[in-house]
Simulated scan of single mutants.
Amino acid sequence: MTDTAAQPVDAQHTFGQKRARAIYDLGHSTIFSARSDARFAYCTYVPPQLDLATNPPELVVVMHGTGRAFTEYRNAFASFARWNNCIILCPLFPVGVNGDGNRDGFKQLREGEIRYDDILLDMVAEVGEKFGCTFPRFALFGYSGGGQFANRFCLLHPTRLWAVSIGAPGSVTLLDPSQDWWVGTRDMHQRFGTTLDLDALRALPVHMIVGKADIETWEITHKEGGKFFMPGANDAGKTRPERLQSLRHSFEQAGVQVHFDILDNVPHNGQACVEPVQDFFAQVLRQMRQPGSV
């Protein structure tokens, strides 16, 4: 015998679930704690018509800089997500998670016992499970401090990416086996348990971008006794454009092709760099989605 009294309650519950998903999960999401470590969080942009799409979406991760403007970057990529059938994931790695006021730990990928690359990879898995997707590879863009993160993440995990865009990092990790991390890669295995996979890096579409007027040095000059000072810390150049050019040359000397953008009359402004990054990702997506592409 059917319990007719329960049907309206069930229908109301189902409606509530769908309404909550539409408000908090689809489109511009609310902010979620990461399941692997609640000290960290993320927001997303998910195309509202995701369930009607004929093809599964791709994932784009946008990594904030020192200012933690993660929702602003999410909003800036919303139209790109709708037009290109992508989900946007923007992590938040707060200042001072160890109670010491450190603003820069995430840029180095490791802060004490925290591995920020592993936190991000679990966020990727969490978002995939939430929307019934698998993301064995994703695109990564980071600007300023996020550019440092993107630079180093692609060295450790090139096989997890379908594209990377490195924007205006204040410090760079070169493909230099003669110098220790973070300046070079000599002791990468001892620090992170992985070796540099040059073949995978050579197969990765790499974009680098910086403003030509991004020439202030007060925040990026390493001084002896400083938190990240080490031999060679300033050798890549004085300014962000000079340091990114050094990173480009380092990649190209190792056989890694780089699409390089230097924007006239642009100072240190991540939002001014978003459109060229999106153009680069869209081009890679078109190639990936061609019939017969791997």
Results as ranks from 00 to 15, higher is better:
residue 96 G to N: 14
residue 23 I to D: 02
residue 201 L to D: 04
residue 143 Y to H: 05
residue 62 V to Y: 00
residue 124 V to Y: 01
residue 255 G to N: 12
residue 233 A to W: 11
residue 53 A to D: 08
residue 237 G to H: 13
residue 124 V to Q: 04
residue 135 F to E: 05
residue 285 L to N: 00
residue 41 A to M: 15
residue 143 Y to P: 01
residue 139 A to C: 04
residue 268 H to N: 10
residue 178 S to F: 02
residue 108 Q to S: 07
residue 87 I to D: 03
residue 49 Q to D: 15
residue 240 R to A: 04
residue 294 V to R: 05
residue 109 L to V: 13
residue 258 V to Q: 11
residue 79 S to V: 14
residue 254 A to L: 02
residue 74 R to Q: 12
residue 201 L to I: 06
residue 119 I to W: 00
residue 57 P to T: 02
residue 256 V to Q: 11
residue 109 L to H: 10
residue 33 S to P: 06
residue 144 S to Y: 00
residue 92 L to Y: 15
residue 232 G to S: 10
residue 172 V to W: 02
residue 220 I to G: 02
residue 233 A to T: 10
residue 12 Q to R: 15
residue 100 D to L: 09
residue 257 Q to K: 09
residue 88 I to E: 03
residue 103 R to E: 04
residue 119 I to S: 05
residue 21 R to I: 01
residue 60 V to I: 06
residue 12 Q to K: 13
residue 88 I to V: 15
residue 36 S to R: 13
residue 59 L to H: 00
residue 178 S to M: 03
residue 289 R to T: 09
residue 277 V to T: 15
residue 203 A to E: 05
residue 223 K to R: 11
residue 248 R to A: 10
residue 51 D to W: 12
residue 71 T to S: 07
residue 50 L to E: 09
residue 160 R to G: 01
residue 69 A to Q: 12
residue 206 V to T: 15
residue 51 D to E: 15
residue 209 I to F: 04
residue 19 R to I: 13
residue 180 D to E: 12
residue 233 A to I: 11
residue 34 A to K: 09
residue 160 R to N: 09
residue 86 C to G: 08
residue 63 M to C: 01
residue 42 Y to M: 05
residue 63 M to K: 00
residue 12 Q to V: 13
residue 107 K to I: 05
residue 85 N to G: 07
residue 274 V to I: 14
residue 10 D to H: 09
residue 2 T to P: 00
residue 132 G to L: 09
residue 251 F to T: 13
residue 76 A to R: 14
residue 240 R to M: 05
residue 26 L to V: 09
residue 126 E to S: 15
residue 218 W to T: 14
residue 80 F to N: 07
residue 160 R to Q: 11
residue 271 Q to N: 11
residue 14 T to G: 02
residue 30 T to A: 10
residue 202 R to D: 00
residue 250 S to M: 14
residue 185 T to M: 05
residue 111 E to G: 14
residue 292 G to V: 14
residue 289 R to W: 03
residue 147 G to H: 07
residue 194 T to W: 00
residue 62 V to H: 00
residue 73 Y to S: 00
residue 73 Y to M: 07
residue 80 F to G: 05
residue 88 I to S: 03
residue 240 R to V: 05
residue 114 I to C: 05
residue 193 G to Y: 15
residue 113 E to L: 12
residue 184 G to M: 11
residue 243 R to A: 13
residue 231 P to K: 08
residue 254 A to Q: 15
residue 3 D to R: 03
residue 200 A to H: 03
residue 14 T to S: 07
residue 74 R to C: 08
residue 34 A to Y: 07
residue 197 D to N: 13
residue 139 A to S: 08
residue 217 T to H: 03
residue 219 E to F: 06
residue 238 K to S: 09
residue 195 T to R: 12
residue 20 A to C: 04
residue 69 A to G: 08
residue 53 A to I: 05
residue 197 D to F: 01
residue 288 M to K: 14
residue 6 A to H: 06
residue 92 L to R: 08
residue 36 S to T: 14
residue 119 I to C: 03
residue 57 P to Y: 01
